[in-house]
Computed example of a mutant assay.
Amino acid sequence: MDCKDIEQAAQRLMGNIHNVKVTSSRTFSQMSGCDLYLKCENRQKTGSFKVRGAFNKLAKLKEEGKTTEVIASSAGNHAQGVSYASSLLGMHATIVMPKSTPIAKVSATQGYGADVVLAGDCYDECYQEALKLQKEKNATFIHPFDDEDVIAGQGTIAYEICHDLPNVDMIVVPAGGGGLLAGISYYAKHINPRIKVIGVQAEGASAIVQSFHKKAYTTTDHVNTIADGIAVNQPGKLTVDLINQNVDDMVTVNDNDIASTILLLLEREKQVVEPSGAASLAAVLNGKIDCKGKRVVCVLSGGNIDVSFIHKVVEKGLVTRGRNMKFKVLMLDVPGALEHLTHLITVANANIIQIQYDRIQADLNLNETILHLAVEVRSKEHGESLIKSLRKKGYDITME
C-alpha cells in the first residue's frame, strides 16, 4: 500500500459518500487549550467511517471483475457499510450477525439491501459461520479492518483532513481493530511527517496500546468497555504493523471519560456520537495528550448508538461530571423530618430525582431511617456546597 492507493480510494468515494468537512469547535478549544477541530464521521453515510473502507474494497473488486457476491461478519458499523456499498455497486451482500444483535441494527443492515443471517452468540461464532457461507456461496469475505483496500479507504479521512486543514499539527483517532488508525497514520506521515498521529483505545480494550508499547503484536483475553465499536481483543496484524511504524503515541481513556464526552457533544455541539467515536475527544479533554497550543483534529468515528443505550450513557456522563449525585442520610423517622430535609435541598437549588426509605437495616434504632437520594445539581462544586450545607445542619451523610 502507498499514498496513491489512498488517493485512488478518495476518487472512488467521491460522490458516493458525504463530504464531511473538518469544523472548528470554539467550546472544546477553550476547554482543551488547543485549536481544536472535529471530523464528524458520525454524520457520514450509514453513520460511520466504515463505509469508506467497505466501498473502496468492493469498488476495486468490481473494477477487477472478481466478484459480485460478498460476505461479512459484523454486529455493527461494518455490516451497514458493506450493505450500503454493495447496493450502490450492484453486488449482493450477505451479513452474518450474532443472534443478540439489536433489531434496529439488523433492520438498518437489511434496509441497505443485504441479506442478514443471525448465527452464534458472539462475534467469533458468527465469523466462523460467515467463513462457512463464503465457501458455499463462492463469495469474497470483506474483513472489517485487516485488509489493505479497507485500510486505504479509511485513510481517505487523512486525505480530506490534509486538504481541509493543511497546517494541522495533530490527528487523534479511535482504534479497535486498527484499520482507521493504520490508514490515517500512513497517509498523514507520508504526506507530512511533521503531523503527529495519536491513537486512542478504551482502557478495557487496549490490545493495540499494548502492541504499540511492546513493539510486538499483542492480544487480550477479554474486553470490557461501553465503547463496543472498539471493543476488539484481537486487532489486525497488518494494522498493528502499520500503526507501530507510523503512529506517534497510543493512549487509553476510561468509560467515565467517554460517557462524559458523549454528553458534552450532545449539549455543546448537538452531535450524537457513539462511545467509540467519542474516545478521541475524551483523550484530549481529559489531558491524556499534550496538545496545548496545537491545531488538533479529533476524528469522531461514528454515531450509531442504540436509542435504548443513550439514557444509560447520559446518566453515566451526568454522574461523572458531577451533575447527578447519590448519597444517603441517617435521620429520625418522625413527622416533618423529610419535609425539613427536602426544604434545605430546595433552598440550595438542587433537584431530587430519586428517593428511597430504608427502615429495616439491622443497626438502625426503632426511631431511625436511612434515606437514599439521587439529586441533580449544576456542577461538582454545587454538589459539594449542598453536602457541606446539609452537614452543617447536623445531617449524617454518606456518599454513594
Rank of each mutant, 00 (worst) to 15 (best):
N138D: 13
A231S: 05
D249G: 11
T346A: 15
L36S: 00
N351L: 12
P166L: 02
Q271F: 12
A283E: 09
Q210F: 01
I352M: 02
E125Q: 11
E267L: 10
H143Q: 06
V22N: 00
A259F: 04
F49Y: 11
L264Q: 13
C3Y: 14
N138S: 10
A93P: 11
N304L: 11
N224E: 12
T252L: 06
Q44L: 03
V272E: 04
S29R: 00
V253T: 08
S48M: 13
K132D: 11
P335Y: 02
I6T: 13
V22M: 02
T23N: 07
S32Q: 08
M97F: 04
M14C: 14
A278L: 06
L266W: 01
A282I: 14
E125C: 02
K21N: 13
G65S: 01
T23A: 10
N367G: 11
Q356R: 15
R295C: 09
G178H: 00
S308V: 14
A139C: 11
S74E: 04
A75W: 06
H311W: 12
I161C: 03
D146T: 09
F309L: 14
A79L: 05
R268P: 07
G177W: 00
K21P: 05
M91F: 03
Q234W: 01
V313E: 13
F141D: 10
E64M: 15
T218C: 04
L300D: 11
Y112W: 14
E384M: 07
K237I: 08
D2F: 14
P144G: 01
L341Q: 01
P174G: 11
K294N: 12
G65C: 02
V313P: 02
S87N: 15
A337V: 06
M91D: 15
L265G: 10
H372D: 15
Q80W: 03
V299P: 08
I142N: 09
I171G: 06
R12A: 13
V273D: 04
A188C: 06
A130T: 10
L180Y: 05
Q210M: 09
E384V: 12
T346I: 10
M97V: 03
A216D: 11
D363H: 15
N16F: 12
S211L: 03
A104G: 11
E269V: 15
Y84Q: 10
V319S: 12
L373F: 02
S308M: 14
S107G: 07
V117P: 06
T101P: 03
L266R: 02
E315Y: 10
V314Y: 00
I191E: 15
G383N: 03
V347E: 13
A108Q: 12
A93C: 13
S86R: 02
N367W: 05
G277E: 14
S211H: 04
Y357H: 14
F145D: 09
R295E: 12
I184N: 04
R323W: 01
E269M: 09
K135V: 15
I243R: 00
T398S: 13
G178C: 07
S260C: 06
N77K: 04
